[in-house]
Amino acid sequence: MQIKSMIKAIAHLACFAPLGYLVYAVNNRLLGGDPQESVLHLLGYWSMLFLLLCLTVTPLKQITKQSQLLHYRRMLGLYCVFYLVLHLTMFFIFYLESNLYLLWQEVVERPYITLGMAASLMLIPLTVTSTKKMQRLLGRRWKKIHWMIYPIALMALGHFIWQSKADLNEPLTYMAWLLILLGYRLYRRFIR
């Protein structure tokens, strides 16, 4: 039991490490000429990374037959939300100067922001129902609600690819990762 909670503590520390790095990097000016933009992009990047990691847990569990891995799925999902909230806050305060009207304009006029914002909003019900209690309470419906993570992931990656100006090598690498995860699930469901 103690070892288990220790591992969990280490995992939490690891999940906070990106934020720790950001604070350190901002203070030591390691983020280049436009640190606000770097922070915005890195927060979004880590949110996406936690989402992909979260989706990797189930296949990993099935392949390695280590069911305790499942304990980390919710944790990774919640860290995805954590970094997403910071990403959105950063955008709202520094890019939109906390102006709600500007936010509305951006959401309406910029398709990649519309997409990102829609994915963010869709994460709300998933976050709210992430507790064990809710899981028990909702029973079968819980799975249906949380199935939304797949369209959310596709939308999040769409947002990432859409905002990149020219170099598709990096965003498409993450898209490949997601497609492998989705492909694996389809394979299990329909072919096996």
């Binding site: 901002v26 000016r29 983020l31 280049g32 000429g33 436009d34 640190p35 606000q36 933009e37 922070v39 520094f94 890019y95 100067e97």
Partner: peptide
């Protein structure tokens, strides 16, 4: 976003 220096608040809209 006018960049004046590389500090966190070195950018002004």
């Amino acid at each position: 976003r006018r960049i004046t220096d590389d500090s966190f608040f070195g950018v002004k809209k």
